[in-house]
Every structure is written in C-alpha cells, then in structure tokens.
Simulated assay, not measured.
Amino acid sequence: MGVRSTCDAQVTSWPRAEALRTDRLSLEPLAVRHAREMVTALAPRDLYRFTGGEPPTSDELEARYRRQARGQSQDGRAGWLNWIIRPAGGGLAIGFVQATLTRRGVELVADLAWLVTVSEQGRGLAGEATLAVAAWLPSIGVRRLQAYVHQDHAVSARVAERLGLAPTSTLVDGEMLWEAITVL
C-alpha cells in the first residue's frame, strides 16, 4: 500500500482525523487557523512543569501546526492525528489530543498525548477528550495504544489508567511508557 518518494523512502497513506464529540467537548481536526487561539491556551508556564520547554509564540505555533496538519512525518513513516479541544457548546480552545501513528510489524500503534490549559484542569476534560480519541482509533485499524507519562505527573497517570493503559518498565527522559492492546 506504500508508494516510493523521490528520496526512495517507504511512504504510507495515513488516516485523517475526524471531528469527534462527547457530552461536554468538541474535538476538531487540527488546522493552522487554530494557532491564534491556542497560543492563549498554551501560555501558562505551569503547563511545562513536567515536559519542559516554553510557551510557543504565535509564529512558532503556526509553523508547528502547518507541519502537523500535513498528517504525516516528512519521511512518511509516522502519521499525525491532532485534535483541538473546545467546549461542546462552542467557545475558545482549551487544549489538544494527538495520536502519532506508527507500524510495529503489521500492527498499527497510536502514541497518545494530551493537554488541557491550566484554567480548565481538574474537571476530567483531558481524560474525556483522550478517551473519545482512543474509542475512535480502532475504527482506523489501531490495535495498540501507548503514551509516555512523566513519573511525577499523577494526573496524567490517571488519564492513562482511564484509557486502560498500564505502566511498563521503559523509561525515556523521565517519562514512563504506558501501553495496552486496545479492547474498545
């Protein structure tokens, strides 16, 4: 199903994100236009306590979203699905969920990440949004979910548990790999 690129790398056609809804949330497939409002959602420095880094500027976020909206890595070996989270009734963006797709043999694997802005935390929104994505992923053939969670980030560990993920012994840059075979 792959095609050859000009640099002779194997390229796969990856699925595209679809709009998703929960009772409280709307998840919109990422577009470059989301950068302006996400600059505000990503501005609180507390968001970077476990991941490091700095809040992005508008220009940095637009460039990042332009790359991510392509839906795959430059070499085509990873698919990128990204959603912007907002309240179901409308309003400003409050975070994101992303799933990076790769193949492990014949198995399609989704590496999940999530973030909800500081002012909206503590209401279960990250778990609700990520669970909606995890429930949708098997429809495109994903059979394994995983996430890297900082060892000290108890809230993200609870989101991972809610997804049915379990911690493994794999540790990368202070983040533990959590994984599960999907049974959704």
Rank of each mutant, 00 (worst) to 15 (best):
M1L: 11
M1I: 10
G2E: 14
G2Y: 15
G2C: 11
V3P: 02
R4G: 08
S5E: 04
D8K: 04
A9P: 00
A9M: 08
A9V: 03
Q10I: 07
Q10Y: 04
V11G: 04
T12S: 11
T12F: 12
S13I: 08
P15E: 02
R16H: 14
A19M: 07
D23I: 02
E28V: 00
E28C: 02
P29K: 07
P29T: 03
V32C: 05
R33M: 09
H34P: 00
E37M: 01
E37R: 03
V39N: 00
T40Q: 06
A43D: 11
A43R: 01
P44Q: 07
R45E: 13
R45L: 07
D46A: 07
D46I: 00
L47V: 01
T51Y: 03
T51I: 06
P55Q: 05
P55I: 08
T57G: 02
D59W: 01
L61W: 02
A63D: 12
R64N: 08
Y65G: 10
R66S: 10
R66K: 12
R66A: 05
R66N: 04
R67K: 07
R67M: 03
R67L: 00
Q68M: 11
A69E: 11
A69D: 06
R70K: 10
G71A: 03
S73I: 01
R77N: 12
R77T: 12
G79V: 08
N82D: 14
W83G: 09
I84K: 06
A88N: 10
G89L: 15
L92N: 09
L92W: 04
L92D: 13
Q98T: 12
Q98C: 10
A99L: 01
R103M: 15
R104F: 06
V106Y: 13
V106E: 14
L108F: 04
L108N: 02
A110I: 07
L112H: 08
V116A: 14
E120Q: 15
Q121C: 12
Q121D: 14
G122D: 00
R123M: 14
A126V: 10
G127H: 08
T130Y: 09
L131K: 13
A134F: 06
A135Q: 14
L137I: 06
G141M: 00
Q146F: 04
Y148S: 04
H150S: 08
H150M: 05
A154N: 05
V159Y: 09
A160E: 10
E161Y: 13
R162K: 12
R162Y: 04
S169D: 15
T170R: 15
D173G: 02
G174S: 12
G174C: 03
M176S: 14
E179W: 13
A180G: 13
